[in-house]
């Protein structure tokens, strides 16, 4: 019986480590913890997920730690700022859209616009100045290029 009691006590001691993401520390608004946990990267090394989204054991530990931080700082925003200040911007799931990071946020969009403009310019050029009148460089190929000969034969057959 004593053996069982020891076992149960031992196992009970595991529970705090495994504590749930469902609960927040006493006196803390759970939504505030969810906010911070949604912004911070779980450092377990699994898929890049927020502490809130990740399903690993490490995320549970981090959830508890962030809950304590919210309790200490008074709000999710303050806890987030404290945590980022302490560990650097890399703990955020995505970089803030400011400074050099704007390249990451807006670069692809700017790239899209530039690509659209480039495609339109290319199309205009192709339409106005077709490339089939090539001055040089194709002489060698016209005698040997099978693709060209194939098309030429087809066109000649059509003409006949």
């Amino acid at each position: 019986m004593r053996k069982y009691l020891i076992l149960i006590i031992l196992l009970a001691s595991i529970l705090p480590v495994l504590a749930s993401k469902g609960a927040a520390p006493a006196g803390v608004d759970r939504d505030e913890v969810v906010f911070v946990a949604g912004e911070i990267l779980c450092d377990c090394g699994c898929h890049p997920q927020s502490v809130y989204a990740c399903a690993c054991g490490r995320s549970d530990e981090m959830w508890l730690m962030l809950g304590d931080l919210v309790a200490k700082t008074g709000s999710g925003e303050a806890a987030l700022a404290t945590y980022v200040e302490e560990h650097g911007e890399k703990v955020l799931l995505a970089p803030r859209a400011e400074g050099f990071n704007l390249f990451a946020w807006l670069g692809p969009l700017a790239g899209l616009l530039l690509a659209v403009v480039a495609v339109i310019l290319i199309l205009r050029r192709w339409k106005a100045n077709p490339e089939e009148h090539t001055e040089n460089g194709t002489e060698l190929d016209t005698t040997l290029d099978a693709g060209y000969l194939s098309r030429l034969n087809k066109d000649l057959e059509n003409m006949q």
């Binding site: 890049p48 911007e89 890399k90 955020l92 799931l93 995505a94 970089p95 400074g99 990451a104």
Partner: peptide
């Protein structure tokens, strides 16, 4: 460029 590490997670 900035000597700062950032993480690129799903949101971006």
């Amino acid at each position: 460029v900035t000597n700062r590490k950032v993480t690129m997670g799903p949101p971006i």
